[in-house]
Amino acid sequence: MIKAKGLKKTFNKGTIDEKVAIDGIDLHVSKGNFVTVIGSNGAGKTTLLNLISGTVEPDAGEIFLDGSRVTHLPEHKRAKYLGRIFQNPLTGTAASMTIEENLAMADLRGQPRGLRWGVTKARRDFYREKLKMLELGLEDRLKESVSMLSGGQRQSLTLLMATLSLPKLLLLDEHTAALDPKTAQRVMDLTDKIVRENNLTTIMVTHNMHQAIRYGNSMIMLHEGRIIFDSEGDSKRALTVEEVVRRFGADLKDETLLS
């Protein structure tokens, strides 16, 4: 589904602030796989997602999505392949617009937009059905502005929007990190449910070792822009936090990883 070869990215090249974010990464995620990406601050997790989504361009290397080369394709042209959720719940929705308007925009991911009505009656019923799944009562608040929702509600709505048109690849960028523990767990369970039900190919960046080990069917660990460990299938299932700490303790200076 997604293939990356020899990806490299350095920020502020040639200046005193030069920072090698990605230092030669090869990645292959096949269809229906759920990969978790773990690493401490500055390991290059978010940059990796930015390269895949086209927010930043790589200095070297190639990216293929679903067989086609997208290395230098602008962000908005990759949209039809990708659904992405960010850490900040405010980034995934348009606050001044209503719940149904937000869903309608997500419904048209990557498609040309015209002068037809943004929300149609048939689609409204469809949105209502989908919102019921969130169990937040949002199905009765279709015409309410998103600015009225809590962070957890907004992130749940974002999750629904990102998966509504079944993207070929779902990118989750620490999407539960800004939520309180209880809400984070709810959103994570919901994510897992949606990913499983739709067999979505997913890459989830996380700061939380437990989360990285518990979810998904493979895991990679980034350190200073390189993949230093990967595990999949049975070995991933058998992985424990203790084992990872024993092997990589020296690289895991970041306390928050284990929290």
Binding site: S53, E75, H76, K77, A79, K80, L82, R84, L90, T91, G92, T93, A94, A95, S96, M97, E101, M105, A106, L108, R109, G110, Q111
Partner: peptide, 14 residues
């Protein structure tokens, strides 16, 4: 409207 409200979000929607 989304362009003025949340440019990043609507760009990721294509």
């Amino acid at each position: 409207r989304a362009t003025g409200d949340n440019e990043q979000m609507i760009r990721t929607l294509g």
